[in-house]
Nucleic acid binder design. Structure first.
Length: 575
RNA sequence: GCCAGCGUAGCUCAGCAGGUAGAGCGGCUGAUUUGUAAUCAGCGGGUCAGGGGUUCGAAUCCCUUCGCUGGCUCCA
């Protein structure tokens, strides 16, 4: 490619991956190269080498990459016969490349070469390494050869590259920002939740402030569901093995279920899912249910991947004639509730069968077609753009996933609306139709927020810990300036509390500057300072983080306005 | 589960060619009674993740268990 001003970023990334392999082979001859593609956030390359790459090695590799970039080595595209290419990479001592060529190469294959380095690759690439100056290596980690757990363990080095230095700096700043708003860090700083070694990994302790936010989320969720015509259920945390046999969980997911416990000589299992209980009640429609799954130790991550979590799943059981309306309703409902929490920029994915592999799915063809049509129709009726994911459907039915976009542009999977042809058959669910005969109803699983733990973690990161007023664990913090203002402050606190506002008062004998700092660091949305002036006039001085000192406010007016913002679930504090 | 790395005071971290543990912030106490992001002084606080080993001696080296981090695999 010669025009470098409008290069797709993927080309730059892919070329940077080649450049990295080039530098690695310069510095560590004998290293075997695997694959090195562009990815969403940059690029990586997999290497096979006995010695682990250290952070210092990464610096050296990066320095060498920049050297080669400055030398502006031309990148050349070669077209070779397959066996010629095989001989070439055998000569270069790259058996993994030979394997790839043998498996994937056509009769003639393309090879890109820069200086001594060559790679089997479709391209395209930049014309020369000079365009790859603005790069940074970020991390090294393990990866399996060809993604197979039993395959060789490769070392994967990740990096980022951009056309300009400014874009690289911006990207690095974004990474810093993401680190700063990490929910695990904010969870500790704001005293929201913790995990505990003695307790075990993947199990969450909700502290008072975190629990308060969670309770508010649940309360809102419940009210919306009742208003939307859903019912709620409570079901046990354990159930007999026979239930899980019928449901198929023991067959399909035994490895992810905890060992059974013995009750009266009967095996009982901790529930990995709510559905079977649900089906037992049949007509019922939704629940918040805590489930327990064995997640492999290396996969646990803060609140985002845990071993005990609360799902907000509902199950919709309806006739084929009702299905389109039901799907549309649940889609509207989901989008609307996500918007309540400030998520309005969603990415929607429709997962359908793999047309090449129809055998691995359960349920009749006709059911699949009608189900898929109802999903498509709902999306199209509302005009939502969506991406069709061929082969991404679960074996038991097609689904719609909604991924929300957070404040710094990251996507998080939340809502999922899934058909289930497996359960309805296994539990032999039927309804009597107008014809007086028994028919199989449709069953749809719906998790809206997904897991409350995970959703809460995403909320923390989205708002960077500064929850909107209606979600904030402490909505108002009152700061008396001196001891003589404490009675007034306490009376004010009582008044606001009775007015329904979650209010605290800082009675430490510190200067007001320090109290303000404390309240700001705790990300309290409304701060009231009270001193001589306020006591005398029966007012309070309002400070809004991010907006500074707003001056004196009348207490009655303040209360009214704060109540209104709370009631309207306003996402901004607008006094 | 796999690869690599990490685990020192409540938090952030220093100490590590093996010689018996330190800072800042927080906490507590006292003085200060304070007007919009840190008042000053003093004090307490750690079986250096747990267990085992090497050594005269281990936070430091080795093994092991647990937990955490970045990925991989997985995620009904």
């Amino acid at each position: 490619m010669s025009d470098d001003s409008h290069l797709p970023i993927e080309v730059l990334r892919h070329s940077a991956a080649h450049l990295m392999a080039h530098a690695v082979l310069d510095l560590y001859p004998g290293t075997k190269t695997g694959i090195g593609p562009a990815v969403e956030t940059g690029f990586y390359y997999d290497f096979l080498r006995d010695e682990p790459f250290t952070p210092e090695d990464l610096e050296k590799i990066e320095a060498r990459m920049k050297e080669i970039a400055r030398e502006n080595v031309p990148i050349e595209r070669l077209v070779l016969a397959k066996d010629e290419a095989v001989r070439m990479f055998e000569g270069l001592g790259q058996p993994l490349k030979v394997e790839l060529i043998r498996e994937n190469g056509d009769a003639s294959v393309t090879v890109y070469r820069q200086g001594p380095f060559a790679d089997f690759c479709l391209g395209p690439h930049v014309a020369s390494t000079g365009l790859l100056q603005n790069l940074k290596l970020l991390s090294v980690s393990g990866a399996y050869w060809k993604g197979d757990e039993r395959g060789a363990q490769m070392q994967r080095i990740y990096g980022a590259v951009f056309p300009t230095g400014k874009e690289l700096d911006d990207h690095l700043k974004l990474l810093e920002e993401a680190k700063k708003r990490d929910h695990r860090r904010l969870g500790a700083e704001l005293d929201l939740f913790s995990t505990n070694e003695e307790l075990g990994g993947g199990l969450i302790l909700w502290h008072p402030k975190g629990a308060r936010v969670r309770a508010i989320i649940e309360q809102h969720w419940r009210e919306r569901h009742w208003a939307g015509g859903y019912d709620i259920l409570f079901t046990p945390h354990i159930g007999r093995a026979t239930l899980w046999q019928t449901s198929g969980h023991l067959g399909f997911y035994k490895d992810s279920m905890y060992s059974p416990m013995d009750i009266d000589d009967q095996p009982y299992y901790l529930k990995p899912m709510n559905c079977p209980f649900h089906i037992e009640i049949y007509k019922s429609r939704m629940r918040l249910g805590t489930v327990y799954r064995y997640e492999r130790s290396g996969t646990l991550h803060g609140l985002l991947r845990v071993r005990g979590f609360t799902q907000d799943d509902a199950h919709i059981i309806c006739t084929p004639g009702q299905i389109e309306d039901e799907i549309l309703r649940v889609l509207d409902f989901s989008v609307s509730i996500l918007a309540d929490f400030g998520f309005t920029d969603n990415k929607i994915e429709l997962s359908v069968r793999d047309p090449k592999n129809p055998g691995k799915y359960c349920g009749a063809d006709e059911l699949w077609c009608r189900a898929e049509a109802s999903l498509v129709k709902a999306l199209e009726t509302r005009g939502y753009p969506y991406e069709r994911m061929e082969g991404e459907a679960v074996f038991y039915g097609p689904k719609i996933d909604i991924k929300i976009k957070d404040a710094i542009g990251r996507h998080w999977q939340c809502t999922t609306i899934q058909f289930d042809f497996n359960m309805s058959e296994r539990f032999d669910m039927t309804y009597v139709g107008e014809d007086g005969k028994e028919h199989r109803p449709y069953m749809v699983h719906r998790a809206l927020l997904g897991s409350l733990e995970r959703f809460f973690g995403v909320l923390v990161e989205h708002y960077n810990g500064s929850f909107p007023l209606w979600l904030a664990p402490v909505q108002v913090m009152i700061l008396p300036i001196a001891e003589r203002h404490e009675d007034y402050a306490r009376a004010l606190e009582t008044r606001l509390r009775e007015g329904g506002l979650r209010t605290g008062v800082d009675l430490s004998r510190e200067k007001v500057g320090k109290k303000i700092r404390g309240a700001e660091l705790q990300k309290v949305p409304l701060i009231l300072v009270v001193g001589d002036k306020e006591v005398e006039s029966g007012s309070a001085s309002l400070r809004v983080p991010g907006q500074g000192d707003k001056g004196a406010v009348d207490v009655a007016r303040f209360l009214e306005k704060a109540q209104e913002l709370d009631r309207l679930k306003s996402l901004v504090v607008n006094f």
